[in-house]
């Protein structure tokens, strides 16, 4: 199939950036979207032009490196699929595709489709862990975890941190990402001692990074490659509000 691509090109963080049109010919329907871009890039190199920079690593939908908008859809049109797992058979000959990086104040564009998602790491730094130093752990089976709880925690823990939730959210909020980590740890018995501090610190870190707020539009859930539920956002809000109530509404000690 032949496609027309409009790709965001931006030389570096300071560059203005613009959409540039490319034609790609004879794309196999079995290729993945990133492989289609690989083909384009080889053509560009052949012509002495700089290839389109995009982030990728595992190409198995698990590392969370890849991701950009295709015609207004984070990770493209297939639900539950990262762009590296999106295959060209879902497109048709003659399609015109607009490819843009995630847009968020907290994710500055570094080049073309590559953005800096360091804000996510900093949210984790605020409390997305259980404080247990190496060697301190008790025998694993001393902490039984009811199966439904473990399963639910796993549903949340699956987040790959790709940033699609932020990209699709009309408010540019990071609530799905943050709530997935808060919920993963706050659901488990191991996470209880730090539960409320965690909710407070991580929610506040999210604001500090310049993300938007949650209007409960649920766009994030619709595009999440791991189909993480916005129920976790409600859980996070609950833990946060409870924490505020319990702590006499004082700001938490910064972790």
């Amino acid at each position: 199939m032949n496609l027309t691509l409009h790709v965001w090109r931006q030389k570096g963080p300071a560059d203005e950036g613009r959409m540039v049109q490319y034609e790609v010919k004879d794309v196999s329907e079995h290729a993945s979207f990133l492989e289609m871009l690989d083909v384009l890039n080889q053509q560009l190199i052949g012509r002495g032009e700089e290839p389109v920079a995009f982030e990728h690593d595992c190409r198995e939908g698990i590392c969370g490196s890849c991701g950009f908008m295709i015609n207004g859809d984070a990770h493209g049109p297939m639900p539950g699929t990262t762009v590296c797992q999106l295959h060209m058979r879902h497109f048709k000959d003659g399609d015109v595709l607009h490819i843009e990086p995630w847009r968020s104040r907290a994710f500055p564009v570094l080049k073309d489709l590559v953005v800096d998602r360091g804000a996510f790491d900093r949210i984790i730094q605020a409390g997305g862990f259980i404080s247990v130093a190496t060697g301190e752990a008790p025998e694993a089976n001393l902490i039984p975890v009811p199966k439904p709880v473990a399963d639910r925690a796993m549903d949340a823990a699956q987040c790959i941190g790709c940033g699609a939730c932020v990209a699709q959210c009309p408010n540019g909020a990071a609530s799905l990402f943050t709530s997935a980590k808060v919920s993963h740890l706050n659901l488990l018995p191991q996470g209880q001692p730090e539960r409320f501090d965690r909710a407070l610190s991580m929610v506040e870190a999210m604001d500090r990074e310049g993300f938007g707020y949650c209007s409960n539009h649920a766009e994030c859930e619709a595009v999440c490659p791991k189909e993480i539920s916005i129920d976790f956002i409600a859980r996070m809000n609950r833990d946060y509000l409870k924490a505020k109530a319990q702590r006499g509404m004082k700001t938490p000690l910064q972790t």
Binding site: W8, D73, A74, P170, G210, G212
Partner: peptide, 14 residues
Amino acid sequence: ARPRAYASRPKIHT
């Protein structure tokens, strides 16, 4: 939170 808008408007899924 989104100083620069998308050129191609994000789809509405919900």
